[in-house]
Design a protein around this nucleic acid. Sequence first.
DNA 1: GTCTATAGCCTGATAGAC
DNA 2: GTCTATCAGGCTATAGAC
Lengths: 227, 227
Amino acid sequence: MAKVDNTSEQEGGAIRRRNERAILAAAERVFARHGYRGASLQEIAEQAGLPKSNVLYYMGSKRKLYVRLLERMMERWNAMLDDISPEDDPAEVLSAFIRSKMQLSRTHPEGSRLFASEILGGAPFLQDYLKGELRDWVESRAAVFREWADRGLMDPVDPVWLIFLIWSTTQHYADFEAQVLGITGRDALSDQDLEEITEFLTRVVIKGCGVKHPAARAEDSATLTER
Amino acid sequence: MAKVDNTSEQEGGAIRRRNERAILAAAERVFARHGYRGASLQEIAEQAGLPKSNVLYYMGSKRKLYVRLLERMMERWNAMLDDISPEDDPAEVLSAFIRSKMQLSRTHPEGSRLFASEILGGAPFLQDYLKGELRDWVESRAAVFREWADRGLMDPVDPVWLIFLIWSTTQHYADFEAQVLGITGRDALSDQDLEEITEFLTRVVIKGCGVKHPAARAEDSATLTER
DNA sequence: GTCTATAGCCTGATAGAC
DNA sequence: GTCTATCAGGCTATAGAC
């Protein structure tokens, strides 16, 4: 229980927290840019402003650091995903779904690219997650979409392809940022750009899948198709 | 002019061609999977069935090999892109656009992932291409889309966001193949799956952007919206 | 707790035998 | 043309001084 005379408990904890945060932020950037193999602890340490050995002291190994980053990203992902039920309004659910994915691309572009890099490399660390948790998540949403289609609230499109469409179009603005900026000739996308893109995607998805407004909520959701 | 007694001209050329093809194919796989830095000449050589030094003998350096692969992918890309004019039928053009991009994802998934990896890493080798050739290509298409919108042939959506939508959704099936297979629980996507996805994407884009059929071609293109 | 020094391995590239 | 041997440098990880 007795601490050594080195540093106070509070200061030590604070330093540790600060260093860990710096390492995680730097590592996310470097892994996202160069992939698991291409990233070096050297570069991560430099970007975190620490000696290389500190990275290993705090994180144990390159592999553990990488896995920790992936898990952190999956948590962000899960935090975003609230449940839906067949009783919900399809237009509202799809709109909220697109909006929250766009915001994740906006607030955590490095995390999105880290995830993309992992998948691009064949998902060696995320195989189980994809075939387990994530697959279940997709299946449960797909079931709701199918019920909406059965009740005539939207066209009978394949729900899984629809989910992939929403994922790919929203992640695109984080993962292919370099291409988007190069082609549009900008330094960065503004909040207004992202709002515009969100509205475009929402409009195309809702109109493209023939999503109807339930009669009971006609006034509430009347603006949604025009969004 | 006189050849040494080593091998016949034909055989030597044939061996060289065969080895180069093997190296390029192996390198595309390895670079796609691990990125530029993460890829090793060792692994490329092993997958090509050649000693490591042969790779350098044929390709000069790791960097030259990588650039050559990128250029080959850009050529495939360019070969696919025929010109369009405001007189064309929007539904036909968009449908053909989606279809050819899906086929590129199908026939050259490693090339698509190589390109994705390059962009994910900030496009260090493709900056000029993105800001030059590709930007011009997008702008010329965007101008046609805008004219269609002005003439009431489709909704006034932002053409650039629409192009990004088509790119991201079609490339997704090559770049995120590991995720798609994990979630759908398959070993591979069949030709039929890809046809189904192509039709789904075409339908959502055409309906979602309110694309109309020019009166003159009503019978010809009547089936397109239902696709 | 923190950092320096270094071990052991793998990298891209080259020189030179055949 | 082809391949073995080797170099100098970077990598992850660890041992041990402070």
